[in-house]
């Protein structure tokens, strides 16, 4: 069945097979009357391709959800000033803070510490695959229906404030990180277009992103004050 979705303020149509995909994405159905800017259909071949790329063996309906993601992200990277990288993104007092790390580092654990310390001031935007867009020169972090293992996130848009590269350490500390490392790490976590123009656009976008968003090397243990140290480093700036 065909549904219209609106994700990161971009309306598109998706012809999907499984009810579970509809359920996972229902918070992102487009309002009545808004016209899709592009559309695609999920086929058995798309699902087979997701299965091939996956290290797991999930039922087909799970792979449909990731197939929609892949088609959507390729379209928006091509047509809009948009990109993604794996991270946990939270809104704190209306500003987005993103945490990225190698899997297994403890992104979710650290995100939990923020929720515990700051309570209602923190909203999870997306815990796995938010979309980053530049609109009128400003970068925003958007919630998406691809929310990771714990299914945390919501359909909101928040101005981007900071990006933290998270690693584990005995003592908590936060410090600057050089631009070239940020770009290299982000490039390693996103879809790299092979088309030279699209690649050039992506590099332009990253250049703008690193100029506007404060980037940090954040080293944390799993104690409560890890979030306080990080908060003071980011907000005290």
């Amino acid at each position: 069945m065909i549904f219209n979705y609106k994700i990161a303020d971009i309306v598109f149509s998706a012809d999907i097979i499984y009810k579970s995909t509809y359920e996972r994405m229902k918070d992102y159905l487009a309002p009545e009357g808004e016209k899709p800017e592009f559309g695609f259909k999920i086929t058995d071949a798309d699902i087979a391709e997701e299965r091939r790329l996956s290290p797991y063996d999930f039922p087909d309906n799970v792979y449909e959800h990731t197939a929609v993601y892949r088609k959507y992200i390729y379209e928006i990277m091509e047509k809009y000033d948009a990109f993604f990288f794996h991270c946990s993104a939270i809104a704190v007092d209306g500003e987005a803070i993103m945490f990225t790390a190698r899997s297994g580092t403890g992104k979710s654990t650290h995100r939990n510490l923020w929720m515990k310390n700051f309570g209602d001031r923190v909203t999870v935007i997306n815990d796995d695959k938010p979309v980053i867009r530049r609109i009128d020169g400003k970068f925003y972090v958007y919630g998406t229906p691809w929310q990771g293992k714990e299914g945390l996130g919501c359909n909101i848009r928040v101005p981007a404030k900071a990006l933290c590269f998270l690693s584990r350490a005995e003592e908590n500390s936060i410090g600057p990180i050089d631009t070239i490392s940020v770009v290299a790490k982000l490039m390693n976590q996103t879809v790299r277009p092979s088309d030279p123009w699209l690649m050039s656009n992506l590099l332009d976008l990253l250049d703008g992103f690193v100029r506007q968003v404060d980037c940090y090397d954040l080293r944390v243990n799993m104690n409560d004050d890890a979030a306080i140290v990080a908060y003071n480093g980011i907000k005290g700036k």
Partner: peptide, 19 residues
């Protein structure tokens, strides 16, 4: 593609080599 970021540069593959 060679691209400058601050004082440093990055080189990335595009086209057929990118894969």
């Amino acid at each position: 593609l060679l691209r400058q970021f601050g004082d440093d540069y990055i080189v990335v593959a595009v086209g057929d080599d990118a894969e």
